[in-house]
Nucleic acid binder design. Structure first.
Lengths: 227, 227
DNA sequence: CAGTGGTCTAGACCACTCG
DNA sequence: GAGTGGTCTAGACCACTGG
């Protein structure tokens, strides 16, 4: 009946009830373990969870404090586009619009740590949901990560091939709102200047930068947190 | 030398190296504990972490499998606006543009489970960074959560008051791109139709809905994940 | 129903850091 | 230096769920 989730719930209750005010030091793990009648490891698990959520601040020797200004932490799921479309009950397809060796623009190259003037693989893909434009993908890809012969990106989207073959890399994701430029407007079938949701991702492996991808979503796209 | 992070690193290496292919069953905790020469709890901690990151799928009795299409999970930090502005090295200020009792529009009321026709508190705030428009906040607030007398929202932004006084509630966050309407354009000083980044949050406590807030950010706003 | 992960315990040592 | 959280261990029981 008294598991770590119960401990977490009780601690959370005390925080909300301001039994423990923001900024205040709360009792140590040992004391709480005695009070709740559980092992210290159980208390530790509960407090660690609340700390990860941003509600507590823990430091050795200094003890555990209630966060002064709790930073909301939210988790997003970024699925493969095919999954995303199919989760909406629609049929996913895509068209490879362009594929070429080319020198990436300086901002892209510098962000990925690619030397200036080096040619990389450029891919432009239009994703469709039930045959209607869903997202416009432009991608720069380190050709060294590809096998020989390279995969057929007109049969498998680069998006999906990378996830399953160069998986589990680290990276950075940024979201913004941008006005549709001429190319996006044409491809997505919207008016130039329309407000579009943009996702930009850089992906690194231990060997270096793998890819930079920019996804411009069709109007109406919303990104949702879990819970 | 052999902690749970070492175990996680080694498991991650095997996944990346495809020693364990996507979809494949990996050895049980007991077996791995023996192999690595650690306690089962240590293996458990490592595998649980990888499962939370979306790289493994664990089910009792069925065992642990490498995720077929690893869904990228990203964590965002949503700070209080004042912190956000100050983190950029700018000075935060705000102006309370409107405050009134009013009946929220039907979509808002229904999303929050508020009965139709009930009046709530409406707040409209402009946040400034170094005196320049930063974000336009429109908020519907359950008046029952306010103390008597209510806080002075022209002195403390509702954003910040709520975080420190009704903190630690659950909720839902959505992001989208929208064209500036006349009001936003005027307040933020941009052209009507400009592409703006919009954050919408609903917040619930155990007692029910607390608030719905819509933040329209000035152009150039980018939302970034942590690593 | 049997196997796997999920959790708890009691004790221990360690790492960090505050005073 | 000493107090606090971070982690490990060995063993145990439990909960879920696949076959």
């Amino acid at each position: 009946m008294t598991g770590w989730e119960d401990v977490r719930a009780e601690v959370l209750r005390r925080i909300r009830a301001r039994d423990w005010a923001p900024g205040a030091l709360i009792p140590g793990e040992e004391a709480l373990a005695v009070e709740f009648g559980v092992a210290r490891a159980t208390v530790n698990r509960a407090l660690r969870d609340l700390a990860e959520a941003g509600l507590l601040e823990r430091r050795r020797k200094a003890g555990t404090r209630v966060a002064l200004l709790p930073v909301r932490r939210a988790t997003l799921e970024i699925p493969v586009i095919r999954q995303e479309v199919e989760a909406r009950g629609q049929r996913h397809s895509f068209r490879l619009l362009a594929m070429a060796d080319a020198v990436p623009p300086v901002p892209v190259a510098s962000q990925l740590g690619w030397g200036p003037g080096l040619a990389k693989l450029y891919l432009e893909t239009l994703h469709l949901a039930n045959g209607k434009p869903y997202a416009h993908e432009t991608r720069w890809l380190e050709p060294a990560v590809l096998p020989d012969p390279p995969p057929d990106f007109s049969g498998v989207s680069a998006n999906e091939w990378l996830v399953t073959h160069v998986a589990y890399a680290t990276g950075d994701i940024a979201f913004s709102a941008e006005a549709a430029d001429a190319r996006c407007a044409e491809v997505l079938g919207v008016a130039p200047g329309a407000a579009l949701f943009v996702t930009e991702r850089t992906t690194f492996s231990a060997q270096g930068a793998i890819t930079f991808v920019r996804l411009v979503h069709a109007p109406g796209y919303r990104l949702h947190t879990l819970v």
